[in-house]
Simulated scan of single mutants.
Amino acid sequence: MQKHTVVVAESQTLFRDMITSFVEEMEEFQVIGKLKNGQEVIDFIKKMEVRPYICLLDIHMPVMDGMECAKQLKEIFPDTKVVLLSAYDDEESIESVLSVCADGYILKSSGLDEFKETLRFIIEGKFVAPQKLVQYFSKRLDALLQIERESSLHYIKERFNHRTDLNQREWQIIQLMKKGWTNKMIAESLEISEGTVKNYLSIIYKKLHIKNRVELLQMLSKMTG
């Protein structure tokens, strides 16, 4: 049976030895490197000319932490599985994990069985994370989907009762205004001049019986929910 190679990076000797021991208890893995920080991981891979299947990285390490190491590994070896280890499950840590495209996130408070099960899930190509991280990600996704839904042309037309006195270009400009775009951004997106955008806005204000951009944004902000 060909074993999956693993590099373990943890600044504390006790935890490094414990993690190594846990991994080596699993017949499908072989630890090929025990290192103290992210820089040692990068140097080890380059010097030994090996490409570990999985890198287990503690987030908080000196010299180069797990986050920076994970980022560099994904840039150099995108196929290498990167699993971050941390004692924290706060929102800041969760945000950081998502930003470096890690393949998994394991809390140090996890039980041994959970730790081993997580590694097995990861070699199956699954992203594994604590429930709190998944819930946080789910909430963020729901919020983004809500923003996208409320910025859709259909949603805006529906809130305006599908009034027929606005043409397609005017609807487009209202939609982009709802997204918070400036006149310059709108002009570049629609490939028209800023002056033309201003002219369209003047017409829109007149049709909606409002005076300016502030009133239009206030009208659009009331459409949420």
Rank of each mutant, 00 (worst) to 15 (best):
I94L: 10
F115T: 12
K139F: 07
V100I: 14
G111Q: 09
K108Q: 00
E91C: 07
E117G: 15
E114T: 12
F137A: 13
I123Q: 07
E92P: 02
I106V: 14
K132E: 07
K139E: 12
F115L: 04
D103E: 10
V82F: 04
D103V: 08
K132P: 04
F121Q: 15
E114H: 10
D79T: 15
I123D: 01
K74S: 11
F127K: 08
I106S: 12
I123E: 11
Q131D: 15
V100L: 00
D89Q: 00
I123T: 02
A102M: 01
L145E: 14
A102D: 04
V128L: 06
Q131F: 09
G111K: 01
K71P: 08
S109F: 05
V100G: 03
G111W: 01
K139T: 13
K126R: 13
K126E: 10
G104Q: 07
E95C: 08
S86K: 01
L112A: 09
Q72K: 14
P130D: 02
K126T: 05
V83P: 02
Y136P: 04
S96A: 14
E75Q: 08
L73F: 02
V134N: 06
L73G: 07
E117K: 09
G104I: 02
L73Q: 03
D89I: 03
I94Q: 04
D79K: 15
G104F: 01
E124Q: 13
L98C: 13
D103N: 15
D90G: 06
K71W: 06
T118H: 07
S109V: 11
E117L: 06
K74N: 09
V128D: 01
F127Q: 12
F77P: 08
K116I: 09
G104V: 03
S138P: 03
Q72A: 10
Q72W: 10
L73V: 09
I94P: 05
Y136I: 06
L98A: 11
P78E: 05
L85A: 00
P130K: 01
L107T: 11
F137M: 13
G104N: 01
K81S: 10
E91P: 05
Y88Q: 13
Y105H: 05
E95V: 02
L141D: 10
S96L: 09
E117Y: 04
Y88S: 15
K71I: 11
E117H: 11
D103I: 07
K81D: 13
I76M: 07
